[in-house]
Amino acid sequence: MSSELVIHVTGARPNFPKAAPVIRALGARGVAQELVHTGQHYDDAMAKVFFRQLALPQPDVDLGVGSGSHARQTAAIMTGLEELFLARRPALVVVYGDVNSTVGAAIVAAKLGIAIAHVEAGLRSFDRTMPEEINRVVTDQLADLLFATSPDALTHLGNEGVRAGKVHFVGNPMIDTLLANLDRFDADQARRDHGLNGDYVVATLHRPSNVDDPDDAAELVKAMHSVADIAEVVVPLHPRGRARLEAAGLFSHDRLRVIDPLGYVEFLGLVRGANAVVTDSGGVQEETTILGVPCLTLRANTERPVTITHGTNRLVTRAELGFVASQVLSAGRAADWPVPPLWDGRAGERIAEVIEAYVHGKGAAGEGRD
């Protein structure tokens, strides 16, 4: 196996739109690469549809780890990746975002002396109760190349003592994917598919802080019903927390319709035509920022503050959601809004340029690590 091999590790739905432009740009440069899917998300709507819709190559390896607790899932990922990395001995392992596959791959690679690149480095919510925050911090401390999507990420990495030479401000590859597929996001088709005639709101809800505790779930359902009192609400519901939200009465409002998770193109077609989005997802905050759709994030914090300062996003509590949603729907969508720097559709090319220079300059796997 080539000492200049790059292995990309993906595992969950948010990873795929980030990885696609990087894989494509490296392929155009002739860099040897393989794609590993850990199987952290494994059904069609949560994973397989992305390979079809984003023209991602089929994974060279699918570990098929499936679901489980954080410890069990991460352990299965690490066991499978250790065997693979020992066999392949790549020059660089590229990880994306903040899921368990990301931190698992980073730990295994670091212990084997294999260099690591982290795409979407430096994001911080400063909330250690979020498992994703632990994954972000650990991965960034182990990474040899850190690709930042926003200026605030550069500040965070500097404050944590990450050497500036490791960090590259490249923009957001998820936005590359969005802009490349913009013409495919058909809001009119989404309205027809879901029988929507007037104003509507899209909601995506799955964070532990909203769905794990029965009392939180009951508050969330009450808040979502207050939105459904003023507009149709469509909820492509993540499997996580579905049973608890159903038990709390989410399905009982006649203007709130729960549907299965959608493919990438179908989901963003639905979002593109929405009057507002309610979410606790990180990626959706970014996508609405580019699409100009008002986004109400049901969290106490966000690791993507640039979507507030340079976008359409705002943080809201469950108690105030109905009132704020009413204000947003009355005001309508803005004609113009700021867009974060370098969210221009070329992040994948910038990342590929750095990776190509790194693997060609480092030679055998593990050389050049701090």
Results as ranks from 00 to 15, higher is better:
31 V>E: 14
311 G>K: 12
159 N>M: 15
122 G>F: 06
221 V>A: 04
227 V>I: 06
265 V>I: 15
253 H>Q: 10
15 N>C: 12
212 D>E: 11
71 A>S: 10
60 D>P: 09
5 L>P: 11
112 L>N: 05
1 M>F: 14
308 I>E: 00
14 P>A: 03
58 Q>E: 11
139 T>W: 10
109 A>N: 03
272 R>L: 12
38 T>H: 14
82 E>D: 11
89 R>I: 05
182 L>C: 08
102 T>S: 08
235 V>C: 00
172 N>C: 10
203 A>S: 03
192 R>F: 07
247 A>M: 08
31 V>K: 13
212 D>P: 02
297 T>A: 01
138 V>T: 06
54 L>G: 07
85 F>Y: 13
340 P>L: 01
90 P>T: 03
146 L>Q: 07
187 A>F: 12
326 S>T: 15
110 A>P: 05
219 E>M: 07
102 T>I: 01
27 G>C: 02
78 M>F: 05
23 I>T: 06
49 V>L: 09
238 H>E: 08
95 V>G: 11
275 N>L: 07
240 R>P: 03
62 D>W: 14
314 R>Q: 01
144 D>T: 11
348 G>Y: 00
349 E>F: 15
230 I>D: 09
332 G>V: 04
211 V>C: 11
93 V>E: 07
157 L>K: 08
355 I>N: 11
211 V>S: 03
62 D>R: 14
243 A>H: 12
38 T>P: 15
153 A>M: 14
117 A>W: 08
16 F>V: 05
188 D>T: 15
271 V>Y: 01
190 A>R: 06
37 H>W: 12
367 E>G: 13
262 L>K: 09
207 R>T: 10
115 A>P: 03
134 I>K: 10
154 L>V: 15
44 D>F: 06
49 V>R: 08
271 V>I: 10
117 A>Q: 04
289 T>A: 10
63 L>Q: 08
297 T>V: 07
215 D>N: 10
16 F>W: 08
114 I>E: 02
208 P>R: 08
242 R>H: 01
87 A>Y: 11
298 L>F: 05
63 L>R: 01
266 E>I: 15
50 F>A: 02
310 H>S: 15
300 A>C: 00
145 L>F: 04
1 M>W: 11
318 R>C: 11
184 R>E: 09
42 Y>P: 14
362 K>A: 09
319 A>R: 06
71 A>T: 13
293 V>Y: 05
202 V>F: 04
337 W>G: 03
37 H>D: 14
267 F>A: 13
341 P>M: 01
66 G>E: 14
327 Q>G: 13
332 G>T: 10
274 A>V: 00
132 E>Y: 03
181 N>C: 06
122 G>K: 00
310 H>K: 14
246 E>T: 02
136 R>N: 15
328 V>Q: 00
179 L>P: 08
184 R>Y: 02
299 R>Y: 02
121 A>Q: 12
234 V>P: 13
50 F>W: 04
285 Q>W: 00
161 G>F: 00
319 A>M: 05
127 D>H: 13
200 Y>G: 04
177 T>I: 03
8 H>D: 13
26 L>N: 05
362 K>Q: 07
2 S>K: 13
